[in-house]
Each structure stands twice: as C-alpha cells, then as structure tokens.
C-alpha cells in the first residue's frame, strides 16, 4: 500500500527549488552545493518530489523557538 508519509506530523514541508530559485539561493548565500547539509535521494519524505542528485530541497520546519525556520539540503546519491 502506497502510504503518503508526508502528512505525518514529524515531517516538515519539503519542496524542491526550481532552477531559477536554486541559482538565486546559491548566489544570495554565496555557497557551494557541496557545503550544504545533505539528504539522500531515496529519503522517504522526498520520493514524491522525484529529485535528482544536486537538487536543493527547501524544508520549512516548525520550530519551537522561531515559529517557522527554513532549512536547505542538497540531494545526494546514496
């Protein structure tokens, strides 16, 4: 049975940056994709996004201290 785990309360919202957003993000933060925290390509939470290695995943965490905090992870091949 295909279970949609993304509705689970432990999982924050994951979304894939488009090419334009990706470029803007890397320029804004003056950062290399390699220096970002990683997420595996077969991670349960991003399977529906159909990511490729090198994509950047934007994660909107619900944070106890900051309301919502935004985090980025780069997709890597297992």
């Amino acid at each position: 049975m295909a279970l949609d785990v993304n509705k689970h309360q432990l999982i924050p919202k994951h979304s894939k940056l488009t090419d334009a957003e990706r470029k803007k993000f890397l320029d804004d933060y003056k950062i290399d994709v390699k220096s970002l925290p990683k997420i595996l390509i077969d991670d349960a939470a991003i399977i529906t996004l159909k990511p490729k290695a090198g994509d950047i995943i934007k994660i909107e965490r619900k944070s106890e201290t900051a309301g919502t905090s935004v985090y980025y992870r780069a997709v890597i091949d297992g």
């Binding site: 785990v5 432990l10 349960a44 939470a45």
Partner: peptide, 14 residues
C-alpha cells in the same frame, strides 16, 4: 526506524 520510514527530517525531530 523513524529515519527509514519517515526520512531524515523526521529523524531530527524525533
């Protein structure tokens, strides 16, 4: 187990 079923962000929260 959380990591395997729900992914890395859920594991962090866990």
């Amino acid at each position: 187990e959380i990591y395997k079923v729900l992914g890395i962000e859920a594991a962090r929260q866990g």
